[in-house]
Write a protein that binds this DNA or RNA. Structure first.
Lengths: 126, 126
DNA sequence: TTAATAACTATACATTAGGATACTACTATC
DNA sequence: GATAGTAGTATCCTAATGTATAGTTATTAA
């Protein structure tokens, strides 16, 4: 309830509006962030597991994007003193809640595909 | 109802999942698409109006991004036979419905900022 | 006739993102 | 001793993205 009020309040305040949306944009920007988040939604993973699960990603890119996501508080990195060391990556609470954005994107994307391929393409071929 | 079912159905089908999310990502990708969509949410605008409303955008970028958005069925371009010609840009239905994605991004962004500046930063300064 | 506005386009340049490839340190296994 | 696995780094290079600046066509207003 309180959150809905705050949400409505902020929609009219463009500075905060822009900052919050920009934060969200930064979290997903680039070619690899969403695949990484998507993969971690199903549980914690190690570096090599992610590398295998995400087709065509190079270790350089994976390493860079993981650092980015960690700095933004989306994932948590844990090092275990095994020999050799193993490292696990998992989503933070914020990271998990990001699924709501993915859901909105999925829903809009599906609706848009539908209307795009019916309305627009037909008009185009006249 | 039907849409919710379809939504759930598709979440388990990763190919469509990825395509739809990628569509959504493409719509907002780049530095200028969201500012343009944001500006058009408040009503139709002409080229020069957009140029004035969006700080630092160059006509080259504005022109390019408008074409992109038009091709993707997000905005509609109308030319009027005034002298000299005037051109108006407005969101399509799909374009307007994109606000749901922006709302999700805003809501997540606000929540994330909150938890980021309380939890994370405090832990960081220990 | 010079300037201003609308709606762009053209050219050249700079920056950034991402890709290819090879390498490190450590250990275990064949 | 060679190979493989883990978790990455280091370099170099190209392609995509964005910026700066100027020019175009047409018309009206001073």
């Amino acid at each position: 309830m309180e959150d809905v009020l705050e949400f409505e309040k902020v929609k009219s305040c463009s500075k905060q509006f822009v900052l919050a949306i920009n934060d969200t944009l930064n979290v997903m920007n680039g070619k690899w962030k969403l695949p990484i988040i998507g993969s971690l939604l199903y549980g914690k993973k190690r570096f090599k597991e992610l590398e295998r699960e995400i087709p065509k990603i190079t270790p350089r890119m994976l390493s860079k994007e993981l650092k980015d996501l960690e700095m933004n508080g989306i994932i948590k990195r844990t090092v275990y003193n095994t020999i050799p060391v193993s490292v696990e990556y998992e989503l933070t609470e914020s990271g998990h809640s990001f699924q709501s954005v993915l859901d909105a994107m999925l829903e809009w994307g599906l609706g848009h595909r539908k209307s795009f391929f019916t309305n627009f393409k037909k008009v185009d071929s006249n």
